[in-house]
Structures are given as structure tokens and as C-alpha cells.
Amino acid sequence: LKKVVALYDYMPMNANDLQLRKGDEYFILEESNLPWWRARDKNGQEGYIPSNYVTEAE
């Protein structure tokens, strides 16, 4: 899975979204639905995130 790091905080707009915290790492599960990607956080929560809020992890 592709790993990304959040560049900004993101508060979910609806139940399908995943909250982002700046500096945290996330795994990308699906990239087909631009600009929204399906992601999983370190706690196993899954949801959609804005792809322009993250960058690929080193």
C-alpha cells in the first residue's frame, strides 16, 4: 500500500470521510476517485480524504 503524510488537518464533511492530522501517516487503499482517495489511518479507521491534503511518505 502507498503511504502518505498529511500536509494539513482535515475535518470530515460527512460520515464517509476520514479525519486527517498534519504529520500523521495514512495508507492509501484506492486512488481511482480523484480528488478523493480512500485511506486508512494508524487506528484502522477508513474513509475518504482530499488527495491534495497529503504527500507521498519518504
Rank of each mutant, 00 (worst) to 15 (best):
L1G: 09
L1S: 06
L1E: 06
L1Q: 08
L1V: 09
L1T: 08
L1D: 05
L1H: 09
K2L: 07
K2R: 14
K2V: 06
K2M: 08
K2Y: 09
K2W: 06
K2H: 07
K2C: 07
K3H: 06
K3M: 09
K3C: 09
K3E: 03
K3I: 13
K3T: 09
K3V: 12
K3R: 13
V4L: 04
V4D: 00
V4F: 07
V4S: 02
V4G: 02
V5W: 10
V5L: 08
V5M: 08
V5Q: 05
V5E: 04
V5N: 04
A6R: 00
A6M: 01
L7T: 04
L7N: 05
L7G: 02
L7Y: 03
L7C: 08
L7I: 09
Y8F: 13
Y8N: 07
Y8V: 08
Y8E: 08
Y8I: 08
Y8M: 12
Y8G: 05
D9S: 05
D9N: 09
D9L: 02
D9Y: 03
D9C: 05
D9I: 02
D9V: 02
D9F: 03
Y10I: 03
Y10R: 07
Y10P: 00
Y10G: 01
Y10H: 05
M11A: 13
M11N: 11
M11T: 13
M11C: 14
M11H: 12
M11Y: 14
P12M: 03
P12L: 02
P12N: 04
P12Q: 04
P12C: 05
P12V: 04
P12Y: 02
M13F: 09
M13S: 12
M13E: 12
M13I: 14
M13P: 07
M13N: 11
N14F: 11
N14V: 06
N14C: 15
N14T: 10
N14G: 12
N14A: 11
A15S: 13
A15C: 12
A15L: 10
A15V: 12
A15W: 11
A15T: 13
A15M: 10
N16T: 14
N16F: 12
N16C: 15
N16R: 12
D17Q: 15
D17G: 15
D17T: 07
D17W: 15
D17L: 11
D17N: 10
D17P: 02
D17E: 15
D17V: 07
D17I: 08
L18S: 01
L18P: 01
L18I: 05
L18A: 01
L18C: 02
L18E: 00
L18W: 01
Q19A: 13
Q19N: 06
Q19T: 09
Q19F: 07
Q19D: 04
Q19L: 10
Q19H: 09
L20D: 00
L20M: 08
L20K: 00
L20A: 01
L20H: 01
L20T: 02
L20Y: 00
R21I: 15
R21V: 15
R21C: 11
R21Q: 09
R21L: 10
R21N: 10
R21K: 13
K22P: 03
K22G: 04
K22T: 07
K22V: 08
K22Q: 10
G23A: 03
G23H: 04
G23T: 03
G23F: 04
G23D: 06
G23E: 03
G23V: 01
G23C: 07
G23S: 04
G23W: 05
D24T: 06
D24I: 06
D24Y: 08
D24R: 06
D24H: 14
D24G: 07
D24K: 06
D24F: 09
D24L: 08
E25F: 15
E25G: 04
E25M: 14
E25A: 09
Y26H: 00
Y26V: 05
Y26N: 00
Y26Q: 00
Y26M: 02
Y26T: 00
Y26S: 00
Y26F: 05
Y26D: 00
F27Y: 14
F27K: 03
F27R: 04
F27P: 00
F27Q: 07
I28L: 09
I28K: 02
I28E: 00
I28S: 01
I28C: 03
I28V: 09
I28G: 00
I28R: 02
I28M: 03
L29R: 03
L29K: 03
L29P: 02
L29I: 13
E30C: 11
E30M: 07
E30A: 08
E30Y: 10
E30R: 05
E30N: 08
E31A: 12
E31G: 09
E31Q: 12
E31L: 09
E31M: 14
E31K: 10
E31D: 13
S32T: 12
S32M: 08
S32Q: 07
S32K: 08
S32W: 09
S32Y: 09
N33P: 14
N33T: 14
N33S: 13
N33R: 09
N33C: 15
L34V: 09
L34I: 07
L34F: 15
L34A: 14
L34Q: 12
P35Y: 15
P35G: 15
P35A: 15
P35V: 15
W36H: 12
W36Y: 15
W36S: 11
W36N: 12
W36I: 14
W37L: 13
W37P: 09
W37D: 02
W37S: 05
W37Y: 10
W37A: 05
R38V: 10
R38K: 15
R38P: 10
R38Y: 15
A39P: 00
A39Q: 00
A39D: 01
A39L: 06
A39V: 11
A39H: 00
A39I: 06
R40A: 08
R40M: 14
R40C: 11
R40I: 12
R40T: 06
R40G: 03
D41F: 01
D41I: 01
D41T: 04
D41R: 02
D41N: 11
D41L: 02
D41Q: 02
D41V: 01
D41E: 03
D41G: 05
D41H: 03
D41A: 09
K42Q: 11
K42M: 14
K42W: 06
K42E: 09
K42A: 11
K42T: 09
K42V: 10
K42D: 05
N43I: 07
N43A: 10
N43C: 13
N43H: 13
N43K: 10
N43V: 07
N43Y: 14
N43W: 13
N43E: 12
N43P: 02
N43Q: 10
G44S: 04
G44T: 02
G44D: 05
G44R: 04
G44N: 06
Q45S: 10
Q45F: 12
Q45A: 12
E46H: 04
E46K: 03
E46Q: 06
E46D: 05
G47F: 03
G47M: 01
Y48H: 05
Y48E: 04
Y48T: 07
Y48G: 03
Y48A: 05
Y48C: 13
Y48S: 05
Y48I: 07
Y48D: 06
Y48W: 15
I49V: 08
I49P: 00
I49N: 01
I49A: 02
P50D: 06
P50A: 04
P50C: 13
P50Y: 10
P50Q: 07
P50H: 08
S51Q: 10
S51C: 13
S51M: 11
N52E: 12
N52W: 15
N52Y: 11
N52S: 14
Y53I: 05
Y53P: 00
Y53E: 01
Y53D: 02
Y53F: 11
Y53R: 05
Y53N: 03
V54G: 01
V54Y: 02
V54S: 01
T55F: 08
T55H: 08
T55S: 11
T55L: 10
T55C: 12
T55N: 06
E56S: 13
E56F: 14
E56Q: 11
E56W: 14
E56D: 14
E56P: 13
E56A: 13
E56L: 13
A57H: 10
A57N: 08
A57P: 12
A57C: 13
A57T: 12
A57R: 10
A57S: 12
A57I: 15
A57Y: 12
A57F: 12
E58K: 13
E58T: 14
E58Y: 13
E58N: 13
E58M: 14
E58V: 14
E58I: 14
E58S: 14
